Amino acid sequence: MVALTPEFEELFKAAKYYPLATASKAGDPNVVPVGSVFLMDPQTIWIGNQFMNATVANLKENPRACLYAWGPDTKGCLKIKADVTVLESGADFEKMKEMVKARRADLVCKALLALKVTEVYNCKSGGDAGKRLL
């Protein structure tokens, strides 16, 4: 398992929206912007699913994803690859429902996407673009 460094954690938390890419078992790609993203610890990212039907279908077939962390207030850009577990019940799912509700009361969380970080890459333009960082 890979753990984000404190510097990478700071960069990650500075982003506001995160493009999340998945693919079906057959390789059909899908990407969606997500905002209910929580860095739970240096190895674990939780995402609340309110609208992502194609994303969840892909993850049930192919439990891998790529998350992009960048924004105007970040100091760099990260591409994070992860193994994903989709949870639709249990204590962690209930906790995610409350976290989503606390952030935006009008949203209903249908699933928790629990990401375990496996690789981190630089995605900032320049000579080190695409370089594996972790």
Results as ranks from 00 to 15, higher is better:
M52D: 14
G76Y: 02
E7I: 08
Y18Q: 00
A114L: 14
R104W: 07
T22S: 11
E9R: 09
L59V: 08
G130M: 11
P42T: 08
P29L: 09
G90C: 11
A54G: 02
K60S: 00
K116G: 06
D128Q: 14
M40I: 15
E88V: 12
A15F: 02
C77K: 08
M1E: 02
C123K: 09
K75Q: 14
I80M: 04
F8G: 03
L107W: 10
D106S: 13
P33D: 06
Q50H: 14
Q50R: 12
C123A: 12
K60V: 00
V32C: 06
T74P: 02
K97T: 12
G27I: 09
D128P: 03
L59A: 04
A111R: 01
N122H: 05
P19K: 03
E119C: 01
T5V: 10
A65C: 11
R103K: 09
Y121T: 05
Y18I: 10
L133V: 14
G76S: 05
V31S: 03
V32W: 00
L20S: 02
A111F: 00
N122Y: 04
V86M: 05
C66K: 00
M52I: 01
F38W: 12
Q50S: 14
T44Y: 04
A114Y: 00
V108S: 11
L113A: 01
D92C: 10
N58D: 15
K16V: 12
D128M: 13
K25N: 00
E7P: 02
G48E: 09
R104K: 13
N58M: 04
K25C: 05
K131E: 15
L115W: 00
C66G: 00
V100R: 01
L133M: 12
K95A: 15
Y17F: 09
G35S: 06
A82W: 04
V34A: 07
K13A: 12
A23C: 11
E98F: 06
E7F: 03
C123D: 08
L134T: 05
A65E: 03
K79A: 15
K25R: 09
S36Q: 10
T5G: 06
K101Q: 13
A15C: 10
Y121Q: 10
F8S: 04
D92S: 09
F93E: 04
T74C: 06
G127M: 15
L78C: 08
A82G: 02
K95V: 14
P72W: 09
K75R: 14
E94H: 11
I80K: 05
Y17K: 01
V84H: 01
N53T: 15
V37S: 04
L133I: 13
K131Q: 14
A15I: 08
L133P: 01
K60F: 00
D106Q: 07
Y18N: 03
P6C: 11
P19G: 01
P72L: 10
T118C: 03
G35C: 01
M1I: 06
P42F: 09
E10T: 15
